[in-house]
């Protein structure tokens, strides 16, 4: 799993695989909170999603216009672009039970295994 920082986000390319996750994590600077969030989301990708995801980490300090374009108010914000519907998770991802439930990850894992 590769975390591309910086230049990216054009319109999110629809993944070939409809089940593939497209995630974007917006952070503000290299703070402890940002780092924790990045760590958590990578962990998530590896474990829950089993690598079936594209993760993009965006630092809004470096790309402030993106914050406006993508309606970012709070940081860190994890935006799950695909699969639809789009969802936002605000916070440092310390409590991911909601997230797992929301993304229906348990059932997916069970189905895939």
């Amino acid at each position: 799993m590769k975390a591309r920082s910086a230049p990216a986000p054009r319109t999110p390319k629809p993944a070939q695989d409809p089940d593939r996750f497209v995630l974007r994590l917006y952070v503000a600077g290299a703070t402890v909170r940002s780092r924790a969030a990045i760590l958590r989301v990578r962990q998530l990708c590896a474990t829950e999603l089993q690598g079936n995801c594209d993760l993009e980490v965006i630092d809004i300090f470096q790309q402030p216009t993106l914050a406006r374009r993508h309606q970012i108010v709070a940081t860190p914000t994890l935006v799950v672009e695909f699969p639809r519907p789009m969802r936002r998770f605000i916070g440092n991802l310390m409590t991911t039970a909601d997230l797992v439930f929301q993304l229906d990850l348990e059932t997916r894992r069970r189905l895939t295994t």
Binding site: P64, R68, R88, L99
Partner: peptide
Amino acid sequence: EVQGTGEYDLEGLFVRLNHA
């Protein structure tokens, strides 16, 4: 669309405001 997952800050708002 929004779910809380822990601590956060409003840097997004700050950045946007600052940029504007």
